[in-house]
C-alpha cells in the first residue's frame, strides 16, 4: 500500500518576471517527518516554502496538503481559490519567519490568540489558555503581557513559533528562523524546534545551520539553481551524496568550521 504524503509538491515552477526561480520541483513530506532544505542563496528555497502556503503564487505544477490543492480550486481547471478559501487553506500550515514578523501592537499572548479567535473561532478564554500553554512550552509564560519591542530576538522568534504552532497546523514551515538572530540566541530557538520534532510535528524548514539540519532532520533536500539537486538521509547528504559537485562545493564552505 502506498503511503499518501501529507505534503506533496509536484513539478512546481515559479518565475519572477523572466527569472525562473523554481524549475519543476518535486518534494514530498510525510506526517511526522522533518525535512530540511539547504542550498546556496538564490536557489529558490524560501520561494518554495512561501509557495506552500501560497504567500507566493506558483505558475505551474501542484502543491497538495492532505490531498487538497493549496492555491487552486479542486477540479480540472486551474482556477485560483477565493481569498476566503485561501485563508482557510493557509490556516492548515503554520509559518515562522526569518524576521519574526510579530504584530508589533499586540502582546506576546495576543499575537498567539489573534488567529485562535479569528480563524479557529475559539472563545477568548480558550484562546488565552491555549496561548498560555504554548508560551509556556517555548519558555515564555512570564512574557505573555510583553510587547514584541520589549523582547529579545530569540524571545520574539519563540513567540513566532508559539503563534504558528498554537493553530495546530498540519505542516509547520520554518524559513531561516535563526538567520536574523545574534549567535548566542540561536540555541534557545533551535531547542524549541528540536522539541517540536520530538513531539511529531511535521516540518519543512530552510536553514543555514548545517549542523542543526544534520541532527534534527529525517531527510535533507539540497536545492541548487531552482531544482532539487540531491535528496536523502542527513548522513547521505553530508557525505556528499555520491559525488554531487554542487553539493560538495556548498558543503566545503562549512567544513572545518562547526560541522
Amino acid at each position: 500500500m502506498e503511503v499518501v504524503p501529507l505534503l506533496a509538491i509536484e513539478q512546481l515552477s515559479k518565475s519572477f518576471g523572466s527569472n525562473e526561480v523554481l524549475k519543476s520541483v518535486d518534494l514530498s513530506v510525510s506526517a511526522g517527518e522533518v525535512v530540511t532544505i539547504i542550498g546556496p542563496s538564490g536557489s529558490g528555497k524560501t520561494t518554495l516554502l512561501r509557495c506552500v502556503n501560497f504567500l507566493e503564487f506558483y505558475d505551474g505544477g501542484s502543491i497538495r496538503i492532505d490531498g487538497s490543492e493549496v492555491g487552486f480550486r479542486d477540479g480540472s481547471q486551474r482556477r485560483r481559490r477565493t481569498e476566503r478559501d485561501l485563508a482557510r487553506m493557509r490556516a492548515e500550515t503554520g509559518m515562522v519567519f526569518q524576521s519574526f514578523n510579530l504584530f508589533p501592537h499586540l502582546t506576546a499572548e495576543q499575537n498567539v490568540t489573534l488567529g485562535l479567535q479569528q480563524v479557529r473561532g475559539k472563545s477568548r478564554k480558550d484562546a488565552r489558555d491555549t496561548a498560555r500553554h504554548w508560551l509556556a512550552r517555548v519558555g515564555l509564560e512570564h512574557k505573555a503581557g510583553s510587547l514584541p519591542s520589549e523582547l529579545s530576538g530569540g524571545q520574539q522568534q519563540r513567540v513566532g513559533i508559539a503563534r504558528a504552532v498554537a493553530m495546530e497546523p498540519k505542516v509547520l514551515l520554518l524559513d531561516e528562523i535563526t538567520s536574523a538572530l545574534d549567535p548566542e540566541l540561536v540555541g534557545e530557538v533551535l531547542d524549541v524546534v528540536t522539541q517540536l520534532a520530538a513531539d511529531g510535528m511535521t516540518m519543512l524548514m530552510v536553514t543555514h545551520e548545517i549542523a542543526f539540519a544534520r541532527d534534527a532532520s529525517h531527510r535533507i533536500v539540497f536545492m541548487a539553481d531552482g531544482r532539487v539537486s540531491a535528496e536523502g538521509s542527513p548522513d547521505h547528504i553530508m557525505s556528499g551524496a555520491d559525488g554531487n559537485d554542487r553539493l560538495e562545493a556548498f558543503l566545503s564552505r562549512f567544513r572545518g568550521s562547526r560541522i
Binding site: A87, A91, T93, F97, Q118
Partner: peptide, 27 residues
C-alpha cells in the same frame, strides 16, 4: 512581513485590515 504573518495564520483580507493593517497604520 507583518501582513504575510497575518496571511500565514489564515486571516481573511478583511480580518487582516481590521486586526493588522489598520492598527499598525494608525500608530
Amino acid at each position: 512581513g507583518q501582513i504575510d504573518a497575518g496571511r500565514a495564520i489564515g486571516l481573511t483580507p478583511i480580518q487582516r485590515l481590521a486586526y493588522v493593517r489598520l492598527p499598525i497604520m494608525t500608530r
